[in-house]
Design a protein around this nucleic acid. Structure first.
Length: 241
DNA sequence: AATATGTGCAACCGCACGCGT
DNA sequence: TACGCGTGCGGTTGCACATAT
């Protein structure tokens, strides 16, 4: 496949290397997307009069212009979420970004590289080990309960697999609701009480009453008003179409 | 003050995948 | 089934600014 064109509107051989977006270009793109919606980026590039590739248009919109994006610095709570999820999924930035409303994969990726990768922080493997240790502790405590579940056909005694399968379920759900229906949010954030507290972990908690130990010792401080109802309302204002 | 080095982040590149034909 | 197109994703690069020497 031709990496230069890729069906993204404009060829790359136009002399520009890194060309920052100007306010006028941002305005053009914002107006175009507002009236025509997202998608069909190659036609956006052609029709809007922007001398940009569709790929560039999409990136600019997704990472900078899209309503609802946070422009503030990553909070310690968000950092904790990033660390935890990175330990689980590795460099699945877009997946991690789904659990940080208002943050983009690019932003998270940059944050990780600048704040962790360079400073010799615990490696992914180490982080994984840390998380796995916590999870293993829960496994031990649950063993008897798990055995009972196995008798009922539930032989999934690897809680990490549960995490992953649950995450996959969320991904599947989000894919199914790809058009941005708010059902996705309700699925992820039931009662909208904790905007940044994904359903995934609420479900994990339901697997074991001992998971409170994990919360109190982990990086996800649920007492922080990170996802308040008023924030959830703000998030609801986003145009999901 | 001048230069070197480090940091943060926007933007681009190349690959992979899904979908329609 | 094969192919082309549109899109998304992770990796990389380049640049502006900050800090150190």
């Amino acid at each position: 496949m031709d990496g230069l064109m890729m069906g993204w509107g404009l060829p790359a051989e136009q002399g520009w290397r890194k060309r920052p977006w100007t306010p006028d270009e941002d305005k053009l793109l914002t107006e175009y997307v507002s009236s025509h919606g997202e998608g069909r980026w190659s036609s956006v590039a052609k029709s809007s009069g922007l001398n940009r590739s569709g790929k560039s248009c999409r990136l600019r919109w997704v990472n900078y212009l899209k309503p609802g994006l946070k422009r503030s610095k990553i909070t310690p709570q968000e950092e904790g979420i990033i660390i935890e999820l990175h330990a689980l999924w590795g460099n699945k930035w877009s997946t991690i970004a789904r659990y940080l409303p208002g943050r983009t994969d690019n932003e998270i990726k940059n944050y990780w590289r600048t704040h962790f990768k360079k400073r010799g922080k615990p490696s992914q493997k180490q982080e994984k080990g840390k998380t796995q240790l916590l999870l293993d502790q829960q496994i031990m405590k649950q063993e008897q309960q798990e055995q009972q579940e196995e008798e009922q056909g539930e032989n999934d005694n690897d809680i990490n697999n549960k995490v992953l399968s649950q995450a996959e379920a969320i991904d599947q759900k989000m894919t199914d609701e790809k058009q941005g229906k708010q059902e996705t949010l309700l699925f992820m954030y039931p009662n909208m009480e904790n905007l940044c507290f994904p359903m995934m972990y609420q479900d994990i908690a339901s697997w074991s009453h001992t998971m409170d130990d994990l919360w109190s010792g982990g990086l996800w401080n649920l007492d922080e008003p990170h996802g308040r109802v008023d924030q959830a309302n703000d998030y609801n204002k986003i145009n999901w179409n």
